[in-house]
Nucleic acid binder design. Structure first.
Lengths: 332, 332
DNA sequence: CCTACAAGGGTAAGCGTTTTCATCTATACG
DNA sequence: CGTATAGATGAAAACGCTTACCCTTGTAGG
């Protein structure tokens, strides 16, 4: 591939002049500008960003670590993050961990190796691995350390919202399908839910999924859900898992919301496509995505970010998997 | 961040020795190995991949250009591609074009600038932009040029499959909701469908979406779908758009499959979550993803790829949005 | 006519690697 | 005892870029 020396030779100028022209730094006469332009055109030249980055000590790339890009919430998040950072001139290095610790560790190394400008990590399992990295890190749905900025909805409150809604809808035999325990967001959700249930003296059964994209489970053995008929209310830790649960109920001919009511968490787009459409707790993907991207860019620029814990307000989104009338609960 | 010179100094060795140790190339005595190891440990050093890449003339990164990572088919594809290339030591640079020509052009430049090892581009609008790039390119769902390998299902056949199924299910008033016309895959689908309809002397109405993720349309004006009641069969160019159509039918209280039958294209995971679950034409995401990743890696390694057009067999997946009995059509 | 300064442009060092090449020490072989 | 030879190491050049620094003009002011 062409390099600057070649362009300089073609245009009959010094290499520094080419650099100055490309970066708009320093004086270049119109005459030479034209020559250089032509040479670049002719050879289809693009400056080598790697060489630039090596000089500037970091690239214009932001690493995005997610458990699973197929989770509707996470891919919408990726979409928004991409949009925001690309406006600031950054690009996305995608890392899919599959909820595996080793893959996350591996990718942290890869990102460090590539001298990315910053990292956004979602539902991370790692801790110390991030601390001596020397690049800005922003975390979503997991608390990593005191120094690393964490973004999350108020998950305790979200859990409470979920319980209260289920309770108001008349549920008394309730099961909570929870997710990966290494995520503080998910355990918070669970705790908020349990605490509120305790107030109303309702005991909650607990089920544990260790990852969230459970499509395969439908075809095989969701042993965990076997006696789902016992319950009249289910709180699932996120929407895609809720979709699985709903599908499972349909297979078992358990009617939603008549026999069992369901509430999810996320408000990802899948909720609207489900039938019945999914009641859920929203953690605004727009707000979360923009915040994550914003914070990491500010950190990259060396600006101070005052809060180390950024909390986003959860909100009940009432749809068809629960029985209460719409109007009575809309808006928090 | 630490560099090799620092490690060399800490370990009291030459810089070349450190390089040899890291790359396992050439002789390093056990004694020095240990010293170097310790120095690396102590300083949390990672070799700078940028510098490596600049020397080796390209990085271990593969650019993935998709219209929209939120499309369930595309994000599953991304997942599989990531899995395959990561096993070969490559990582993914994610480019989301939003179906916009300018964003795709921009990203081609960015990828070239970063000297990626190869590019996988999905449903591309660009043509010449790829031709003089000097890196291997593999295209899915769009034919770019004679030299660039294209992977696609046999979309003409897929379209035929779709029509024949709808016809066998008794549909006679049929509309085809088609997608972005710059994708040869989508126009092929359309043509195959129309041709087969012509054989049966059925005239097809045509509707055009210019992008596929139409969630917003539900809330606003899907004028195009206004008189959907006229029809008893709909073929939608992909699953996520089909999901939108189904949701719209439900809003208009049009019963599926009793009053109108629907068939999609892709067999993405969303089809199983819809209610009724979506009959669709499968283009095995597994097979497509593996093929794309495989071909690009082989091209990167300089191996010859004999076929320039790789065709993957489409297959009818019968579910609940069409009326025919299951057993009669399973398996192509 | 000389000086000063601004505009314009080139040389070379340096960023963090890899790799070639030269050097040096033992050991083995004749 | 001389000399291959294998093992072990470092110096230095190169990759493609940016930038500090220096040199050359041309013009204006004295």
């Amino acid at each position: 591939m062409t390099n600057m020396r070649r362009i300089a030779k073609e245009a009959g100028v010094g290499i520094a002049t080419v650099s100055r022209y490309i970066n708009n730094t320093g004086y270049v006469s119109d005459e030479l500008k034209k020559k250089i332009e032509e040479a670049i055109e002719r050879t289809n030249y693009r400056p080598n960003e790697l060489a630039r980055a090596i000089f500037n000590r970091n690239s214009k790339i932001i690493g995005l670590i997610v458990p699973n890009i197929s989770n509707p919430y996470f891919n919408e998040l990726a979409l928004i993050i991409e949009e925001v950072v690309s406006k600031a001139g950054y690009s996305i290095f995608l890392c899919n961990t599959n909820d595996e610790l080793e893959k996350e560790q591996h990718y942290i190394n890869v990102l460090q190796g590539h001298r990315v400008a910053g990292i956004i990590t979602v539902r991370s399992r790692c801790k110390e691995e991030y601390t001596f990295l020397g690049v800005p890190v922003v975390s979503f749905e997991s608390v990593i350390s005191d120094e690393i900025v964490t973004v999350a909805t108020d998950n305790v409150k979200g859990g409470k919202l979920a319980f209260n809604h289920l309770y108001e809808c008349g549920c008394r035999e309730i099961v909570h399908v929870s997710g990966p325990i290494y995520s503080s967001a998910i355990t918070d959700r669970c705790n908020g839910f349990l605490k509120e249930a305790d107030k109303k003296q309702i005991t909650i059964d607990l089920l544990q999924f260790d990852t969230d994209f459970q499509r395969k489970m439908l075809e095989s053995n969701i042993r965990a859900l076997e006696d789902i008929e016992k319950y009249d209310g289910i709180f699932v830790f996120n929407d895609i898992a809720a979709a699985t649960v709903i599908r499972y109920c349909q297979l078992k001919k358990v009617k939603i919301p008549e026999e069992v009511q369901v509430i999810g968490y996320d408000n990802s787009y899948i909720g609207e496509f489900l039938y019945p459409s999914l009641t859920t707790i929203e953690q605004s993907v727009q707000e979360v995505g923009i915040t994550l991207a914003d914070v990491v860019i500010r950190l990259i620029r060396g600006e101070e970010v005052q809060e180390q814990r950024i909390s986003i307000e959860p909100r009940l989104i009432k749809r068809e998997t629960t029985k209460l009338q719409n109007n009575s609960v809309q808006g928090v």
